[in-house]
Design a protein around this nucleic acid. Structure first.
Length: 271
DNA sequence: CCGACAACCTGACGGC
DNA sequence: TGCCGTCAGGTTGTCG
């Protein structure tokens, strides 16, 4: 479930095997994921040295000494496997370094993507153009959130999933953060007091940081690059816990908001 | 601007 | 055992 913490965990797991290494083999096992791979991907990456890795929202960034940045998105089911014992049906892109390490981008559902852009033009990468602030960063405050939500009547849950409002949140961490901040998911976003937005900002930060520290959540097909499973799912307060007791004792409820499950406590999150 | 829905794709799970 | 319906972390687009 690659939301921001899982992508962050993935990138951190890739750093030791990629940073400073030369890519000696770049092999696409199929032509596309959600979109076609860049046609010149192999030519531009083969022989390049990885100078650094990074993350923007749910996108992983791999910079090379040729001024290119490979941008990967893990979609719903993507992960990187490091030195897999054998290749599987869903290992769609292979990278091999001069240290002999093989990386396989595995994505059964193929909702992910791989792009290659000039590093100095990263800001113009379409998904980044209108992207909101990074929650761990200084640009994400009650003030910026207040401004972004001003006048909006849509439910706060829907707007937190909108990457233009804040970058990197997905269905799980939105549910978790709203619960921690004691805000009802259906509350009109523009009518939330500044005080409560302050709480929401802190909650979003806390939930994401805890997940990163725990090494990313674990769902069926998510693994850290090294292969072991993350375990933050054990700390979920509401997500996936319909019927279980909230800390306050009330049973956690689940409802459907435009096709996606929302988990919340009807007592703690009344408004 | 908003909400609802569909599409993209595979796999896991529960019910029968 | 197996078949079938439902559901899953995301993004993008359409429609009313």
């Amino acid at each position: 479930m690659p939301e921001l913490p899982e992508v962050e965990t993935t990138v951190r797991g890739l750093v030791p095997v990629l940073e400073g290494r030369r890519l000696v083999r770049v092999e696409a096992k199929r032509a596309d994921l959600r979109r076609a791979f860049p046609p010149d991907l192999r030519q531009r990456l083969t022989g390049a040295i990885v100078t650094g890795l990074g993350r923007r929202a749910k996108y992983g960034l791999i910079d090379t000494d040729r001024g290119d940045t490979m941008i990967f998105h893990l979609g719903m089911s993507g992960r990187w496997r490091i030195d897999p014992a054998e290749l599987g049906a869903h290992d769609h892109l292979l990278l091999e370094t001069d240290a002999g390490c093989v990386l396989a981008l595995n994505d059964p559902r193929r909702f992910g993507s791989v792009d290659l852009v000039r590093t100095d033009g990263l800001a113009a990468y379409p998904p980044f153009v209108a992207m909101g602030p990074e929650p761990p960063g200084e640009g994400f405050t009650a003030d910026t959130l207040l401004a972004a939500l001003d006048g909006r009547s849509a439910p706060i849950k829907a707007l937190l999933l909108d990457q233009r409002i804040v970058a990197g949140l997905g269905n799980i961490y939105v549910c978790e953060a709203l619960h921690l901040a004691k805000i009802a998911p259906g509350r009109a976003a523009g009518r939330i007091s500044r005080d409560r937005l302050e709480r929401l900002v802190a909650a979003i930060r806390a939930v994401l940081l805890a997940a990163i520290e725990a090494g990313g959540s674990s769902l069926r097909d998510y693994a850290r690059p090294s292969g072991e499973l993350g375990y933050f799912s054990k700390q979920w307060r509401v997500y996936g816990r319909e019927g279980e007791a909230c800390g306050c004792g009330a049973p956690i409820r689940r409802r459907n908001d435009s096709g996606r499950s929302t988990f919340f406590c009807p007592r703690c999150q009344r408004s």
